[in-house]
Structures are given as structure tokens and as C-alpha cells.
Design a protein around this nucleic acid. Structure first.
Lengths: 136, 136
DNA sequence: TCCCATTTGTGCGTATGTATC
DNA sequence: GGATACATACGCACAAATGGG
């Protein structure tokens, strides 16, 4: 139950509740998160507040909002593995909206970036890519 | 000038304008972004709309909101380099609010995660860390 | 110290649009 | 066509922290 008088903002409390449910596996990959209207009633808050909570989870890459179908728990296991070579460097940053479109990446999903020693650069969706050192 | 009748949402148009200014260097590292009230007047929209635009830029890690002082262009910090060893894997994901506090990471900044072959895991702030293959 | 203006944070209500089922 | 659900945008109000006088 959320507490309007608590030190923590109501929308953060709701986000905490949903995050817990996801991380505990109560809401599994692909599961539907209750609708904004449903959450609004459950927690006795405004729709604005519910939407802010969902925003938080989107920013963490935990959910995927597909309007107007609903909001769903995002599966986030790295599936593609990219091999690293000597001298390669790896870093990460958030994409711009244009880059998200171009690379088909959802909100809350960072890029995994590999700079090869020859100067070339490769961008990968961070929710399904991992880089690996050649085990030799 | 933003166009309320355009296909693109007004808050996205405002975000585009600000992003351009930042990327073109018109708003430099550490520079103050105009206040919400100022932007509201400039673009003739509601504060809600302005705040959504800022949200977008926060999500991209381009600005840093320090209430109630203002919103600032995020300055890029010096980059730490982490050495990769054989069998290491690298990936990325967004932190939760708790993790952001713990690792002193701002909104819109992803983690760079290194899994060592011994099973241990290291989390780094993605805005100031890169991983590198030992050049041997 | 105190007051005040500024600025962001949080939360409410409302309305309309649009895509899906 | 209708119900549902998310997107966008407006207005309002109050809180809290900062900084200047």
C-alpha cells in the first residue's frame, strides 16, 4: 500500500511496487502490467501519478509500453554475443530518438558501443547484446 | 518555432530544438538551460509540455536537473579505462534509482557491466568508463 | 535571521486524439 | 461502432530548496 504522507513520492512508491513484482518474477517476461486506469484505482491516485511511475520503469528498461495495447514486462537477456579483439574498446550511452528508430531500440535501452582498433565503431542494442573477450 | 499542428508532438519538437543547441555547442557543457517558465513563454506551451521535453533530454543523458537551481548541460567527465581479461564479458543496462544513488550516477546514464570469468561482476558509470582489451 | 522571488518536484483534474480489439 | 488504453496537452495548486537582499 502506498502512503501519500511518506517521504517518498507516491509515483516512486508505485514504481517500487511494480519493480519488485517484476524482479521477484511475479510479473514475468512479456506479462502485461495492469492498465493505467486499473493502477489508478488500486492505489487511489491520479492517472498522472500512475503514468509517472510507468515512466520510471521505462527509463530503467524494465517495461515496454505499446500504445494502445498495453504495457508489458520486457525480457532482457543478452542473446547476441560480439567477439572482442585486441585493442577494442567498449562503452555505452543512451541513444537519441533518431538512433532508437534506426536501430530499433526501445526507450530505456542503452547502446553497447565497440570501437575497433582500426577506428571503426559498432552500435548494438544493449538489451540483447554482450561483448566477449575471445577465450583464446 | 514549434508547430502545434505538426505530426510531431510539441514536447518532442522542443526537445529537438534543445538537443540541437547542445550538440551544435550553442549550449556548452555546464551551461544553464532556460528555466521551465522561460521555455513555456518562448514556445507558448504549458509547463507540462516543457517538462516532458526536459524529461526526454534527461533520458538521453544530455542534461542534469538540479532542483531548485536549474537544468544544466551535462559536462563530460574524464574517462576511466578498465582492463579486460580473457573470458570477460561486457554488457550494459540502466540502473534502478537505488543503484543510481549507490554508484552516484545521474538519470539517463547507463551502467557498463563487466562479468569476470570467475563469476564476479563490476558495475561502472557508463558516462565515464570504457573497457579495453589488454593491447598485450 | 528573516523575507521573498525563483525554480523544480509532485499531484490533482480535465479534455481530446488515435490505435487496437 | 463501441470500449479500452495509451499519448498529448491544458490548467491549477502547493511543497521544498536555493539564493539574494
Amino acid at each position: 500500500m502506498i502512503d501519500p504522507t511518506a517521504d517518498r513520492a507516491q509515483y516512486r512508491q508505485i514504481a517500487d511496487t511494480l519493480r519488485d513484482a517484476i524482479l521477484r518474477g511475479e510479473l514475468q517476461d512479456g506479462a502485461r502490467v495492469p492498465s493505467e486506469e486499473r493502477l489508478r484505482q488500486e492505489h487511489g491516485v491520479s492517472r498522472t501519478t500512475v503514468r509517472k511511475a510507468i515512466e520510471v520503469l521505462k527509463g530503467e528498461g524494465l517495461v515496454d509500453v505499446r500504445a494502445p495495447r498495453g504495457t508489458f514486462v520486457r525480457s532482457q537477456r543478452p542473446v547476441d554475443t560480439v567477439q572482442l579483439r585486441r585493442g577494442d574498446r567498449v562503452w555505452t550511452r543512451m541513444p537519441s530518438p533518431d538512433e532508437r528508430r534506426e536501430h530499433d531500440v526501445r526507450e530505456g535501452v542503452p547502446f553497447l558501443i565497440i570501437s575497433r582498433s582500426d577506428g571503426s565503431q559498432e552500435l548494438y542494442p544493449g538489451d540483447r547484446t554482450q561483448a566477449q573477450q575471445s577465450p583464446r
